[in-house]
Design a protein around this nucleic acid. Sequence first.
DNA 1: TAGATTATGTAGACTGTCTACAAGCACGGA
DNA 2: TCCGTGCTTGTAGACAGTCTACATAATCTA
Lengths: 118, 118
Amino acid sequence: MIQKPPTRVEFLQGTLDLLILRTLLAGPSHGHAVAKHIQRTSEDLLQVETGSLYPALHRLEAKGWIAASWELSDKGKRAKYYRLTALGRKKLVTEQSKWQAFARAMGLILNPVIEEGQ
Amino acid sequence: MIQKPPTRVEFLQGTLDLLILRTLLAGPSHGHAVAKHIQRTSEDLLQVETGSLYPALHRLEAKGWIAASWELSDKGKRAKYYRLTALGRKKLVTEQSKWQAFARAMGLILNPVIEEGQ
DNA sequence: TAGATTATGTAGACTGTCTACAAGCACGGA
DNA sequence: TCCGTGCTTGTAGACAGTCTACATAATCTA
């Protein structure tokens, strides 16, 4: 059976970091699981490619926003579990409010309030 | 007097094209005016740099989404007026729905619905 | 033993935004 | 006349993050 390809949306640059941080807020997780969570929670709209995922995780770790440790996954495979650091929690808040400001700005332009008398 | 710098948000890659198209839906306009419109309408949250603006306009023109002609601006200066082409109108619709899908997907992850019994 | 699944990773292309610089023209004030 | 300022368009090059494509390894199952 051929799966109908869900209309996927490309990631806007910078948003993946935020989604990873938000996912880890629910508790430590490993890369593969983070990607699956994002895909499922977004109703298959967003698919995280491994070529985006792992560089992003390494980036966040290098910045000290997340920290890693090798453990065993649910399926009994070695997996690198990431958790939010204290700094990461702070950054999550600021990144999320940045996103909201941006989304609001987009809305202002895309759906402008009709001026009276115009 | 020092102007307090408004908290600006960086553009997420790909969104500028959409904002330009949306701006031109209201009627032909030139680059400088488009940038001002975006800045004003977004309440100064978004500022379009010239190094982003003009490449974007040229890109859209090359794709045939907008078309240009030299005219005189309100202030009596030569200015390149852009207008949406028929193709551009179609693309505006699809680009806008792509944005809305993406924004919705972000919302699903950032503000998940709490499952019952959890 | 072959293949699917789980899991991590890298190289290099690509795209679009940013900073910084440049230039032309009109206007008003010194 | 000269200078600064506002309006308008433009380019070069740096930079950042995502994408495609490829690679590896371990475990489980047919």
